[in-house]
C-alpha cells in the first residue's frame, strides 16, 4: 500500500521552537541565536557585550551550547548573570542545539527577569543553520582567519542569518585576507545581510553591534 504524505520532517522540532518563542514573547524576552565555526569568538563576544548591556540596565542571560564540557559557561560565570550550560552529549552528541534542548534549558531560567537571552550555539558553520529554536534573530560570526570563501561553501548559514559579525578585525594587518572580496561573497549569498566588523580585543565595532542589538530589541 502507498501512503502519500506531504509533511515537513522538522515539524515536531519547529512546533517546540514555536512554543519557545511563545514563552519568550509572553515575557518580552529578545532572543539572539549566535552561530559560527568553533573558535571564531562567540564566547569572547559575550564576555565583552554583556557587561556593557548590564551597565545600561539591560538584564541578560545565556544558554551556552557545547557538545561537552562547561568551559564556556565557566568563562561567563564572572559576569554574574544566569548561564545555563546545554551539552548535547546526553542527547547523542548532536552538532547543533535543538529546540527541545532550548526548551529543557528554559526550565532553569526566570524569563520575566530577562530582557535579552543569548543562545550561544555549538561551534559549527553547517548544522545549526538548519534548525529554528524560537529565536528573534539569527546572528553569525566569521573570523578573518577563516577566509573569503566561506559564504560560498556554507551558504545556508549566510542565508539564514540577519547579521554577520566579522570578528578578529585586529588581525587584519597580519593576514592576506581581501575584505572587499569577503563582503562581496557574503552579498552574493545574502544581499540583505548586515555586516559588522568587530574586534573584541580592541573594542572596534562593539558599539555598532550593541546599537544593532538595542535597536532590534
Amino acid at each position: 500500500m502507498e501512503i502519500p504524505v506531504i509533511r515537513d520532517v522538522l515539524e515536531e522540532s519547529n512546533a517546540l521552537a514555536k512554543e519557545n518563542r511563545a514563552a519568550f514573547d509572553r515575557h518580552g524576552v529578545f532572543v539572539v541565536n549566535i552561530m559560527s565555526s568553533p573558535g571564531s569568538g562567540k564566547t569572547t563576544l559575550l564576555q565583552k557585550t554583556i557587561p556593557i548591556l548590564k551597565a545600561r540596565g539591560i538584564s541578560c542571560a545565556v544558554i551556552e551550547g557545547d557538545v561537552s564540557s562547561t568551559l564556556d559557561s565557566e568563562r561567563l560565570a564572572p559576569l554574574g548573570i544566569p548561564v545555563i550550560q546545554a551539552n548535547t552529549e546526553p542527547f547523542g552528541g548532536d552538532c547543533h542545539l535543538g529546540s527541545h534542548m532550548v526548551q529543557a534549558a528554559l526550565k532553569y531560567l526566570d524569563l520575566p527577569s530577562i530582557e535579552i537571552l543569548f543562545i550561544e550555539n555549538i561551534g559549527n558553520l553547517v548544522c545549526p543553520a538548519e534548525f529554528y529554536l524560537g529565536e528573534n534573530r539569527k546572528v553569525m560570526m566569521l573570523s578573518l582567519t577563516e577566509g573569503e570563501d566561506k559564504p560560498t561553501k556554507y551558504p545556508l548559514m549566510f542565508r539564514e542569518c540577519q547579521v554577520c559579525l566579522l570578528s578578529k578585525m585586529d588581525l587584519a594587518p597580519h593576514l592576506d585576507i581581501n575584505l572587499d572580496l569577503l563582503e562581496s561573497n557574503i552579498q552574493k549569498v545574502n544581499s540583505a545581510m548586515r555586516i559588522l566588523p568587530i574586534s573584541a580585543k580592541t573594542g572596534e565595532g562593539l558599539m555598532a553591534w550593541l546599537d544593532w542589538l538595542v535597536n532590534e530589541r
Partner: peptide, 20 residues
C-alpha cells in the same frame, strides 16, 4: 539585484510511505 526569495530547495519533506 540580490533581493531574492527561495521558492524551493530548502526543507526536508516526507512525501510517501510504502508498506505491506
Amino acid at each position: 539585484r540580490g533581493d531574492v526569495e527561495v521558492l524551493q530547495g530548502r526543507g526536508i519533506t516526507l512525501t510517501r510511505i510504502i508498506a505491506d
